[in-house]
């Protein structure tokens, strides 16, 4: 079956509906390769020239309500980013590691919605992380929109929800991330 037939069939609608509630990736939690640590925090703070002393000055931080160094809250997503395999990263379209199995998102690519554009990122932070804590993340597809007409072509908005948990399994943050999977205008569909 080619992409055109697939798109026009009811199979696509069914496949899209079946995505809701499914995990993105293997379904296993992504465990941060390293616990929250000062070198990575210092690197982050330097990159964004963020001089907030609760991130890097332990003496100062111990006198604040945090009681010690805390990780920058928006660094939450950084801890669980995959350790990349640099060789071949461009050939893989930027995927940090070779994919294991089929991503549920291939449903869109097979139907011609090959473009990907990030549209929203929403964070809810329950508490700040301390040095030594290990974060894990699980990501579920929360919703898929009807097909929408956008200025870059027709597409579907897909919302993922990532839940970040600490060593005890308690939620430390939730992220909703919305992307547009679109059919580039002018491209053969």
């Amino acid at each position: 079956m080619n992409a055109e037939q697939y798109d026009s069939s009811a199979n696509f609608a069914h496949a899209v509906a079946a995505l809701v509630g499914r995990p993105v990736g293997s379904g296993k939690a992504s465990v941060a390769p390293d616990p929250v640590n000062q070198p990575m925090i210092r690197h982050w703070a330097a990159a964004f020239e963020d001089a907030n002393p609760v991130y890097t000055d332990s003496e100062f931080a111990s006198g604040t309500r945090f009681g010690g160094i805390v990780a920058p809250p928006l660094m939450l997503q950084t801890w669980t980013m995959a350790t990349p395999m640099i060789t071949g990263i461009a050939q893989r379209g930027g995927a940090p590691v070779p994919s294991e199995g089929t991503s549920p998102m291939t449903v869109f690519d097979e139907a011609g919605f090959v473009g990907t554009l990030a549209s929203n990122s929403e964070f809810e932070i329950m508490r700040y992380l301390r040095i030594g804590e290990t974060v894990s993340a699980t990501t579920i597809i929360e919703s898929v929109s009807e097909q929408k007409k956008t200025r870059i072509g027709p597409g579907h908005f897909v919302t993922w929800v990532t839940t970040y948990v600490d060593d005890s399994g308690d939620t430390v943050g939730i992220q909703r991330f919305r992307i547009l999977k679109f059919k580039p205008e002018g491209a053969p569909s």
């Binding site: 609760v54 929203n120 990122s121 929403e122 964070f123 809810e124 932070i125």
Partner: peptide, 16 residues
Amino acid sequence: DWAGPEAMVRKLSIRL
């Protein structure tokens, strides 16, 4: 930078 080091960011919701 505005609120100071005692501030805690609880929510951030952005559109790109």
